[in-house]
Simulated scan of single mutants.
Amino acid sequence: MTTPNRPPAGIPMELPDDLTPFYSNVVRISHTPTDFVLDFVQVLPAQLRNLIRSRIVMSPVGAKLFLRAFAENLARYEASFGEIQIPQGDPGLAGDLFRRIHPNEPPPQGE
């Protein structure tokens, strides 16, 4: 039985000098039969247009391998720094600000 070709561990990578880091607090994930598409956005309060700043397209196999690697890294992070808490219940002011993604949506009562 042959094993599939795998890229060598520790693939050399170079960070371009002109690469600007980008913070994203929203990702939209969609797919076709042959690709997964991850659109990364930074949503800020009172911002009317939320532009996609980065789009990553992956094969289904690549997406599943990414999911596995990401889950392993989250587990290592939590082992070192403690469990990441996901807020429950009333989202508070930040939740009210970020809940309205569509600019034409009416504001909540009291604004």
Rank of each mutant, 00 (worst) to 15 (best):
S54K: 06
P45S: 07
S80K: 11
A79P: 05
M58F: 08
I52A: 12
H102A: 14
G62I: 03
P60F: 05
F66Y: 02
F70D: 04
R100H: 11
V27D: 06
A94N: 12
N25K: 08
H31A: 15
I84S: 05
A46Q: 11
R68H: 03
V43Y: 05
Q47I: 07
N104H: 11
P87G: 12
G92S: 07
P87S: 14
T32M: 09
T34Q: 13
N73S: 11
H31V: 06
S24C: 11
A46K: 13
N50L: 01
N73H: 11
P106M: 08
F36D: 04
V27L: 02
A79I: 05
F40D: 01
D35C: 05
L93P: 01
Q88F: 07
A63W: 01
L67V: 00
R68W: 00
T32Q: 07
D35P: 00
R76W: 06
P33R: 08
I101W: 08
L93T: 09
P91E: 07
V27M: 07
L74H: 05
V57D: 03
L93E: 10
A46D: 15
P21C: 01
L67W: 01
I52T: 15
L44I: 04
L67R: 03
A69T: 00
R49M: 03
G92A: 08
G92M: 08
R68Y: 02
R28E: 03
F40T: 00
Q47L: 14
N50M: 05
V61C: 06
F40V: 00
R49D: 14
N104S: 14
I29L: 14
V26D: 07
H102F: 10
P60G: 12
A69K: 03
A75C: 04
P21R: 09
R99A: 13
I84T: 10
P91S: 07
I101T: 15
Y77P: 03
Y77W: 09
L51S: 09
G92Y: 13
P107C: 01
E72R: 05
S54Y: 10
H31N: 15
A46P: 00
L65M: 14
D18E: 14
P87V: 09
N73G: 05
P21A: 13
L51A: 14
G89S: 12
T34M: 10
Q85W: 02
S59M: 10
L48H: 04
L38K: 00
P87Y: 09
I29K: 04
L67Q: 05
I86K: 10
A63C: 02
P106D: 08
G62H: 06
I86N: 08
S80G: 12
V43H: 15
L48E: 15
E78D: 07
T32A: 11
L19K: 09
E105I: 03
Y77K: 03
E78R: 06
Q85D: 09
S80N: 11
T20I: 04
N73V: 00
I56N: 06
Q47T: 12
S30V: 02
